[in-house]
Simulated assay, not measured.
Amino acid sequence: MAHLLDDPLPAGMFSPAEEAVIRYARASTWMQTITDEMWADLQAHFDTRQIVEVSFTVGLDQLVSRFHATVHTDVDEATAEATGASCAVSIPPPPT
């Protein structure tokens, strides 16, 4: 998961198809416009069905992540060990 938020992405670390998915997922997660260039980049590597699957997977992850951020789900030991119990996206404070 290292370097997924780097901009630009490190040269040679990801395949061109992976880079297309990473750029798309970041923009979608940050609620930015999916540009024609991003879409064309996805189409260069994936067919329509695969792009729908990528979009569904990204959206499902966003849904689950926002749920956990909302209810402040505790992180289990295995996840904390694997991720360092950190998240690159800041979690808002609980409501008062």
Rank of each mutant, 00 (worst) to 15 (best):
A25P: 02
Q50L: 08
M38G: 09
V58T: 14
A25G: 06
L42A: 05
W30P: 01
A27F: 01
I22F: 12
A27T: 00
L42T: 12
R26N: 12
W30I: 00
V21W: 10
S55P: 09
E53N: 15
T33R: 02
S55Y: 11
E37R: 04
S55N: 10
A25W: 05
D61L: 03
T33P: 01
T29G: 00
T48H: 06
A40F: 07
M38L: 13
T48V: 03
W30E: 03
Y24Q: 10
L42G: 08
R49F: 09
T48M: 05
A40E: 07
Q43N: 14
T29M: 00
R26S: 08
S28Q: 10
F46E: 08
Q50Y: 04
H45N: 11
H45I: 02
T48G: 05
W39Y: 15
R49N: 12
E37Y: 00
Q50N: 14
V52Y: 15
I22E: 04
R23Y: 03
I34W: 01
F46Y: 13
V54S: 09
M38A: 11
A27N: 01
F46P: 09
D61F: 06
M31V: 10
A27V: 01
A27R: 07
I34G: 10
V21F: 08
F56G: 09
L60K: 05
F46C: 07
R49V: 10
L60G: 07
Q32G: 03
T35G: 06
Q50W: 08
Q50K: 15
A27K: 05
T57A: 08
Y24I: 09
H45T: 06
T35K: 02
I51D: 12
Q62L: 01
W39I: 05
A40H: 11
H45V: 03
I22S: 12
Q32L: 06
T29P: 00
Q32S: 03
S28A: 06
T35V: 02
V58Q: 13
A25N: 05
L60A: 04
Y24W: 09
M31G: 03
A44E: 14
M31F: 11
R49Q: 12
Q43E: 13
A40L: 06
M31W: 11
S28I: 00
D41F: 07
I34Q: 07
D47A: 07
T35F: 00
V52H: 15
W39K: 15
R23L: 09
I34S: 15
Y24M: 06
V52D: 15
D61Q: 06
G59A: 04
Q62F: 00
S55Q: 11
S28H: 04
E53S: 15
V58I: 14
L42P: 03
A40W: 09
T33K: 03
